[in-house]
Amino acid sequence: MKVKVKYFGMIAEAAGKSEEVLELENKLSVSELKKRQIVNYKIPDPDAVQIAVNHDLKTEVELKEGDEVAFLPPFAGG
C-alpha cells in the first residue's frame, strides 16, 4: 500500500525532505505512522506535531491506498 507523506516546517528540516511516497507493508493507523516517522527522523517535540489525512486533521484513522498524510508543525496563535 502506498501513501504520500508531506512534511512542513521544522519537520521537513528534520526529515531532510518535504515529501515522500511510502510503501507500507501492513495497514497502519495514523498514530502508528506518526510514531514510526518521529523515530525514523528524530523529529523534535513530537507532542506538538499534528497530522492531517487527505486535508482533515485526524488522530485515529486506518490509512488506505493513496492517502495523503501531512505532518504539520505547531501553529502560532495570533
Rank of each mutant, 00 (worst) to 15 (best):
L72H: 03
E20D: 15
K4F: 04
K27P: 11
K34P: 08
Y41Q: 05
K42T: 07
D47K: 13
A70L: 02
Q37H: 10
E23M: 10
F71I: 02
I43T: 09
K2T: 13
F71P: 03
D56R: 07
L57G: 00
E19T: 09
N54V: 00
V5A: 06
L63I: 11
E20F: 12
L33P: 03
D47R: 13
E25D: 06
E68W: 02
L22I: 06
E62P: 05
L28F: 06
V49S: 12
M10S: 15
A48T: 14
A15R: 08
V3G: 01
S31A: 14
D47W: 05
S29F: 10
A70M: 03
A15S: 03
Q37F: 14
E65G: 13
F71C: 02
F8D: 08
A14H: 11
I51E: 04
V5K: 00
V30E: 03
V53M: 06
N54L: 00
K27I: 09
N40W: 03
D67W: 09
T59I: 03
K58R: 14
Y7G: 02
K17Y: 01
V39K: 15
G9I: 07
V3E: 00
L28Q: 12
P46G: 05
D67S: 12
G9Q: 06
A12S: 12
E60W: 03
K42V: 09
K27C: 03
K17R: 13
K58Y: 01
K17P: 01
V69W: 12
E19M: 11
K6W: 07
R36W: 10
N54P: 00
L24W: 06
K17G: 04
I38W: 07
A12G: 09
T59D: 13
E62L: 14
E68T: 13
N40C: 06
Y41C: 05
E13W: 14
I43D: 04
F8M: 12
M1F: 05
K64C: 02
S31Y: 11
I38M: 08
K17V: 01
A14D: 00
E13Q: 15
K64R: 08
D67P: 11
V49M: 10
E32L: 07
K6P: 00
L63V: 11
L33R: 02
V69Y: 08
D47I: 06
L33A: 02
V39T: 10
I11K: 11
V5E: 13
I38T: 10
K35S: 15
K35A: 15
D45L: 14
H55Q: 14
I43F: 04
D47P: 03
V61C: 02
V30A: 13
E68Q: 13
L33Y: 02
K42D: 14
E68D: 09
V21S: 08
P73R: 06
P73N: 05
I38P: 04
K34Y: 07
K64P: 01
M1V: 07
P73L: 06
G16A: 05
K17Q: 13
V21K: 07
V3Y: 01
E13M: 14
V39F: 09
K35E: 15
L24T: 05
K64T: 11
G9L: 04
G77W: 10
I51K: 01
E62K: 10
V49T: 12
I11M: 09
L22Y: 09
E20H: 13
G16T: 11
K2S: 14
G16W: 09
Q50L: 15
G78W: 07
Q37V: 10
E25Q: 12
M10W: 11
F75A: 14
G77R: 11
P44F: 04
E62Y: 11
